[in-house]
Design a protein around this nucleic acid. Structure first.
Length: 478
RNA sequence: CGAGGUAUAGCGCAGUUUGGUAGCGCGCUUGGUUCGGGACCAAGAGGCCGUGAGUUCGAAUCUCGCUACCUCGACCA
């Protein structure tokens, strides 16, 4: 019907105009709206509910691995930022500062945190005295501000929400172990909660965090073949602890700088969900972070007994699932489209015909048109199974997409072909930053990360042709 | 920050060339008929035309500045 075509046009075609599709989905599904200040966004209730579920799942994992939450101040003296040379160099260009308070200029400008290493280190230097104080494992949920040049809702905003973990350890081995452990937590979370497969690996020197000795990342492939860096963990060695005079007296009676890590994930993960799973109908949310896991849609609401039966079903499911009964005065067809656009995993239709048969119709979002009739007394059980199956299917679909969009390449031409046609390229690299820069210049792709499985796929650098020992992913990135 | 584009009702647009006081579709409100894939009829509400200055008797329309958004580059979670 003509009306249906108009609806489809409300969201740009995912295959023809991915950036526009993305923005349409964010705005039309009411995840977020633009704020009045450049690069800011308002996270609307539907989007914030996803963030709360992400927080809940992730926080549980941090606690299970021995971390505690704390909160550090938003404002940081500018002088703190300058203590670690690489750090200030990396962040200065995008730092926002407060220079006035009330009617007076401040004696020292205050940085609105772009990240909290410096102020946390300053505090840690007071708190740590003995090896008995280690390890110190703290996480904070906070907002940070980075004055980015180009912004996009969830993917890059001037202010964003995130979590940042900051830990201190007595030995380098223990700190390195922490960076890898958290990387695994991120990876497992992405797989089991967001249904997104990640490439785990180590960043190149060029791409690592300002002030880190080593940076690791999880990288997700979006449906346009671009990479989204979705989480990072950093090993600092003693770079910061030395700069900030964090010292402890070790068992051997010597004063030492502890080894440090930091790690973070942000509201960007919501962008990852949108771009990894969405389709021409809009959002498709993984059940574990879907604010509404199933929506009950009454059919022929005015007919006797329909609303009553729907309410009864709602009451029987509401304690076990995040469920909504939509009894608004819109036609069923209108609601079907609405909730599909908003990515609700399961729709439960209940109308006079179903009530007569003692069933409800379950329709899954991830497989178009697949409907099953389920006896009302088995609804809870079947819904649980269906949600699990939806998660599996979404993960497998994303995995299959990803695996079919990675090309092993041997030289620059193959690399360029691969990334220009929407793929990641996996190839050998000599480790020279000059090659990274040249690749970026010629193909617009950057190095993403080096997988832990370094089984060679060749022996020559894809760029310079010299002997190469590092296997690394290349891709265009957000 | 560099190049290009856009800004008129909640959304999508016309009107700008040739200045004369704003219109269409969707949505919204009310009443009625409807309801298993975006229903229909009728009656309504809603806009200092992004913003600041200038030209003019008169500016959505002409001139200059600013801002925001979109696309493409350089920087980042």
């Amino acid at each position: 019907m003509a009306k249906e075509k108009e609806f489809v046009k409300e969201i740009a075609d995912i295959h023809e105009d991915f950036p526009q599709w993305y923005t349409d989905v964010v705005l039309k599904t009411q995840l977020a709206d633009y704020g009045p200040v450049k690069g800011t966004m308002v996270i609307r209730p539907y989007g914030y509910a996803i963030w709360e579920l992400i927080q809940k799942e992730m926080d549980k994992r941090f606690k299970e691995t021995g971390h505690e939450n704390a909160y550090f101040p938003l404002l940081i003296p500018y002088s703190y930022l300058t203590k670690e040379a690489e750090h200030v160099e990396g962040f200065a260009p995008e730092v926002a500062m407060v220079t006035r308070a009330g009617q007076n200029d401040l004696p020292e400008p205050l940085v609105i945190r772009p990240t909290s290493e410096t102020i946390i280190c300053e505090m840690y230097s007071k708190w740590v005295e003995s090896y008995r104080d280690l390890p110190l494992l703290i996480n904070q949920w906070a907002n940070v501000v980075r004055w980015e040049k180009t912004t996009r809702p969830f993917l890059r905003t001037s202010e964003f929400l995130w979590q940042e973990g900051h830990t201190l350890h007595a030995t380098a081995e223990e700190a390195e172990e922490e960076t890898l452990k958290i990387l695994d937590v991120y990876d497992e979370f992405a797989r089991n909660v967001l249904a997104i497969p990640m490439f785990k690996g180590r960043k190149s020197e060029k791409e690592k965090f300002a002030g880190a000795q080593a940076t690791y990342s999880i990288e997700a492939m979006m449906q346009d073949g671009k990479s989204l860096q979705s989480g990072t963990t950093h090993f600092f060695g003693t770079n910061f602890s030395a700069a900030f005079n964090i010292e402890f007296l070790d068992k051997d009676g010597k004063r030492k700088n502890p080894y440090q890590t930091s790690w973070g994930t942000s509201t960007r993960l919501i962008g990852a969900i949108i771009m990894a799973h969405g389709d021409e109908r809009g959002l498709c949310l993984p059940p574990k972070v879907a604010p509404i896991q199933a929506v009950i849609i009454p059919v022929a609401m005015h007919k006797a007994g329909v609303i009553e039966k729907c309410t009864e079903v709602y009451d029987s499911l509401k304690n076990e699932f995040r469920i909504k009964l939509d009894d608004r005065d819109y036609s069923p067809g209108w609601k079907f489209n609405e909730y599909e656009m908003k990515g609700v995993p399961v729709r439960i239709e209940i109308g006079p015909r179903d009530i007569e048969k003692g069933v409800a119709v379950l329709c899954r979002r991830d497989k178009e048109g697949e409907k099953t009739e389920v006896p009302l007394d088995k609804l809870g059980e079947e819904l649980g199974k269906l949600l699990d199956d939806i998660h599996e299917n979404m993960y497998n679909k994303a995995l299959a997409f990803r695996d079919s969009h990675v090309k092993t390449v041997a030289d620059m031409n193959e690399l360029k072909d691969a990334v220009d046609s929407g793929n990641f390229a996996l190839g050998m690299w000599c480790g020279d930053e000059a090659c990274e820069n040249k690749i970026k210049e010629l193909t617009n792709a950057s190095t993403r990360n080096m997988p832990f499985d370094q089984t060679p796929c060749g022996d020559k650098c894809v760029c310079c042709g010299k002997k190469a020992t590092k296997k690394i992913y290349f891709g265009k990135a957000y």
